[in-house]
Write a protein that binds this DNA or RNA. Structure first.
Length: 488
RNA sequence: GCCCCUCUAGCUCAAUUGGCAGAGCAACGGACUCUUAAUCCGCAGGUUCUGGGUUCGAGUCCCAGGGGGGGUACCA
């Protein structure tokens, strides 16, 4: 039964897109059923029978088969597709119903029944055009093939590409499972500033903007790290933030200038705890969202089960290039190796930076099974605590899966004096021309001076994790609206 | 940034060696009372991404530019 004042069944919505229901003050009774509801409740209704139950459904008309005095339509909503059955005899404004375009939004109300051929359907006892499409829909069989159109008109892609819907449904569930899982373990979600006076927390070039009233430049955050750690100083023992960060760098199938980063910090913890936590979280997500810890990624088996391998960066390099390196390896030899692998070295790079570059260039992409690469040089880890027994190396790991860095974590550097000298080293790099080097953040140092307990921190690239679980090769396929050059 | 590939009707795609730009779907007109990408008949649809050039003749070859994709660099 339509709401009072609602457009009469079959009445076409006016060109402005406002339906007759506006006279009633905009009240609208939502559908009683979804396509999935009807299928799950009446999926085994025998052919040629009526259920005696009435449903109101809404969605877009995706297919249409008019056959003289009877018409069939396929209505799609967020849960799937269901046929609507319209015999001329009983369908109000039958001719107008037949004129609906593929892509039009319809509301259909009627008895749930099956056709003689056994197709579960909603009979069109009442119907209403909710919104019409003024652009023809893509080919009903081939859909959209042009990636440009798919990315630019995601509102269309979502209707015609099943995989797109599946990927973004998975992504939504992933976010919500992460939140629940962390909250169950005592982590508290927070929101920290996106506009930073000093863009810190990662080695990256920030986007710059300007605040008029304060007349100062501000930067879009490259990481929430320094604010989250201030919160640990403030007594929030377990915090996380899952939000967008911005890095002014190139686009690629594995990079987008804005991406979603989960960062979490736990007081009284260290990087070994973060290994367990990231492993358990990702395994939980795989089981819940994919149904298994054994994935197929890019046509290749990927096993996320069991305890993940831990191997030091130097051991990875030793296996990869058959040469044992250390911070004591003569600089000339490191430079020679780096150049052998087409790395453009800089004079001011120390041994730690050279070793890390060699690792990333020669080894990282070849690591397939989940692997914690541990022990990163202090030189490239200005916010991580040094290993007590290995000067020059930090208690840090990166989690590599399918050749991609999925997580980065360390035992946080909590000593303000040490942190200041690390910042100063970064500053020296900046003077050498490293525009991505971190700036000295005096307030962050002051926070550390108030005292920060031993803390473990973890960052997970959410887009990459979704790509892994959804078997997508490009980040653009897991971003609803990937960054593209503006049209025209 | 650089390198390679690509762009034809609203959508998906053809077009032989450089020789009249075509089909299916969608749209439009018609037939059809159980279809499943309905079917059948008919009709219409084009700045071949843009601008130059070579040629009797360019969708096709050449140059420049634009969009997109992939690779590479930077990075997560």
């Amino acid at each position: 039964m339509a709401a009072p004042g609602m457009a009469a069944a079959g009445e076409r919505v006016s060109e402005s897109g406002v339906s007759g229901s506006s006279a009633s003050g905009g009240s609208y009774n939502p559908p009683s059923h979804t396509a999935a509801n009807i299928i799950s409740q009446h999926g085994n209704l025998e052919a040629g029978t009526e259920s005696g139950e009435t449903a109101k459904i809404a969605g877009r008309l995706m297919l249409r088969r008019v056959q003289g005095k009877v018409a069939f339509g396929t209505l799609q909503d967020s849960t799937g597709r269901i046929q609507v059955f319209a015999p001329a005899q009983s369908t109000p404004s039958f001719e107008e119903f037949c004129e609906c375009s593929i892509g039009d939004w319809l509301e259909v109300e009627g008895e749930i029944m099956t056709t003689r051929r056994g197709e579960l359907s909603v009979r069109v006892d009442r119907w209403q055009l909710l919104a019409s499409t003024r652009h023809p829909f893509p080919d009903k069989w081939h859909g959209l093939a042009d990636t440009d159109t798919r990315y630019r008109r995601r509102y269309l892609d979502l209707w015609v590409t099943e995989e797109t819907r599946a990927t973004f449904n998975l992504r939504s569930k992933l976010s919500s499972h992460i939140r629940r899982w962390l909250e169950d373990r005592g982590y508290q979600e927070v929101e920290t500033p996106i506009l930073h006076a000093i863009a810190g927390g990662a080695h990256a070039k920030p986007f710059v903007t300007h605040h008029e009233a304060l007349d100062c430049d501000l930067y879009l955050r490259v990481a929430p790290e320094l604010y989250l750690k201030r919160l640990v100083v403030g007594g929030m023992e377990r915090v996380f933030e899952m939000g967008r960060v911005f890095r002014n760098e190139g686009l690629s199938p594995r990079h987008n200038p804005e991406f979603t980063l989960l960062e979490l910090y736990a007081a009284y913890s260290d990087y070994t705890h973060m290994m367990m936590l990231s492993q358990e979280l990702i395994q939980h997500l795989a089981r819940t969202l994919v149904g298994s810890e054994q994935l197929i990624y890019n046509g290749r088996e990927l096993n996320l089960g069991g305890d993940w391998c831990r191997v030091s960066m130097l051991d990875v390099i030793a296996e990869g290039i058959q040469e044992h390196l250390s911070l004591e390896t003569p600089r000339d030899r490191l430079v020679e190796l780096a150049q052998k692998y087409d790395i453009e070295t800089q004079d001011w790079w120390g041994p730690g930076k050279l070793i890390c570059e060699i690792y990333e260039k020669t080894c990282e992409a070849d690591i397939w099974e989940p692997t914690f690469v541990v022990d990163y040089p202090s030189e490239v880890s200005p916010l991580a605590m040094e290993c007590p027994d290995k000067p020059g190396w930090t208690q840090r790991f990166e989690l590599i899966i399918a050749g991609r860095e999925v997580a980065n974590a360390f035992s946080e550097l909590v000593d303000p004096g040490e942190q200041r000298s690390r910042f100063e080293a970064q500053n020296a790099n900046r003077e050498h021309g490293d525009v991505e080097a971190m700036l000295i953040d005096e307030d962050y140092l002051r926070a550390l001076e108030y005292g920060m307990p031993p803390t473990g921190g973890l960052g997970i690239g959410i887009d990459r994790l979704v790509a892994l679980l959804a078997d997508c090769q490009s980040l653009r396929d897991v971003l609803l609206f990937p960054t593209l050059r503006p049209e025209d």
